[in-house]
Design a protein around this nucleic acid. Structure first.
Lengths: 239, 239
DNA sequence: GCCGATTTGTCCGTATGTATC
DNA sequence: CGATACATACGGACAAATCGG
């Protein structure tokens, strides 16, 4: 048993995904939902705010809570949420695979600290991985992890999933992630290890991830072949 | 006088931006903040949740609310918020200008409805604009607005700011925006009206914007020259 | 290891304001 | 005008995590 508000959020979200509550229709009112789920009105409001922040609904004062989500126009890669490579691949039903090209311990110097956002002298694990879909290397990740936050990390674990290890074994909770999307020229290294065809530019996602302790433990640059890249996001003005 | 929680949010945010509350330090506790601002603890919690969703802080249970925002690594164009072209340009201190290339009324057919997300038979305003920075045409916007939601819109107004007109004159409130980032090949049209140099690919932001009534009134494709494009976003896991 | 103080997280119930119909 | 629906704010209770003695 978890949080009440989160269970309600998931239930409402699934009903929207299944079309029980259709696009441009209203979900039941707050007062009805409090009776349906037998909880307080504040708890319902919390659930609805999560639905709103994920772009599923738009509350309209005096009228109701309108569904503004349409299943058909959904992105095929990254969502406005933190998602593991394995999670994203599984959700899209792709045959995915990771190859680790580099695994080394380094100490951050001034330049590296500037690039990654870590502090000089931080002990880091430098990781280079290629993500393979249906035999084609489409994504190249260059990551730096804070060694003190990921003790025991090995190349074999990285080959599987760093996040699964951090959450499952180390019981770390991943919370906030700042991401920046850019478009950049492909480097010689990109061409050497990825299946780039004739593409000379890549979509680059740079992200800094914080755990529940508020420590930044990851700085990753993810370089995607453009034809397989999509980034989705929901913004709410003033909220 | 507006909302208490929002005023507190702005005050705390500004103190973080000004360095009063520095990176990796804790802001005052909930109980202290309730005394400082003379309000209830729930109101403080709401303010902090907004700070968190904007990537400024990370609450840590049993310890406090940690500042995780660093001013230096801030993106130079779009933020994880809904922002007007004019707002973004002003914030970056750029000499910006808009040229309207096309302004026409159209009725959505099946194909256009599929592309834009509007309904067939919807009356739309079709707008093509080029955004100019320091004399260089770097962004091409192709927009469709729901005519019924933007009555009175003219080419002259569009040259200035559609959002300013919608919010200022029509008192519409822009609320939710779903955005997708892609990388696409430059078209002949792109090359004709933009200063593309040798770039043959563009960063493409497709967004669907809803007003407070929950009606989608805008569908825009914004095509950016890659060297001037940055998209920033903050994600919070499970929230 | 335990206890108590502090701090954030969840949930409840109520009251009042504002917009819609 | 009244009923309904969402929005804001208050105050209280308890849980969970942290930290120091």
């Amino acid at each position: 048993m978890r949080n009440i508000y989160y269970d309600i959020y998931e239930d409402l979200r699934d009903k929207i995904l299944d079309g029980v509550y259709a696009y441009q229709t209203y979900i039941p009112s707050e007062s009805r939902l409090t009776k349906m789920y037998e909880c307080s009105h504040n708890t319902i409001r919390k659930s609805i705010s999560v639905l709103m922040l994920h772009g599923f609904v738009q509350p309209v004062r005096g009228k109701g809570v309108l569904v503004i989500y349409r299943p058909e126009r959904r992105a095929n890669f990254v969502l406005g949420d933190i998602e593991t490579f394995k999670e994203a691949a599984a959700r899209n039903g792709l045959v995915a695979q990771t190859r680790t090209l580099l695994f080394e311990h380094v100490r951050a110097d001034a330049h590296l600290a500037e690039c990654t956002g870590f502090m000089p002298e931080d002990e880091l694990i430098h990781l280079e991985r290629v993500r393979i879909f249906d035999g084609k290397a489409l994504i190249r990740d260059e990551s730096f992890f804070l060694a003190s936050a990921l003790s025991g990390l090995t190349a074999e674990i990285a080959e599987d999933s760093v996040y699964a290890y951090a959450e499952g074994v180390l019981h770390m909770k991943i919370v906030t992630s700042n991401r920046t999307v850019n478009v950049d020229f492909a480097t010689a290294r990109d061409r050497a290890v990825m299946d780039l065809l004739d593409f000379d530019m890549l979509a680059v996602v740079t992200n800094h991830t914080f755990n529940e302790q508020g420590v930044m433990f990851e700085s990753t640059q993810s370089r995607h072949r453009p034809d397989f890249f999509t980034f989705h996001d929901t913004a709410v003005r003033g909220y």
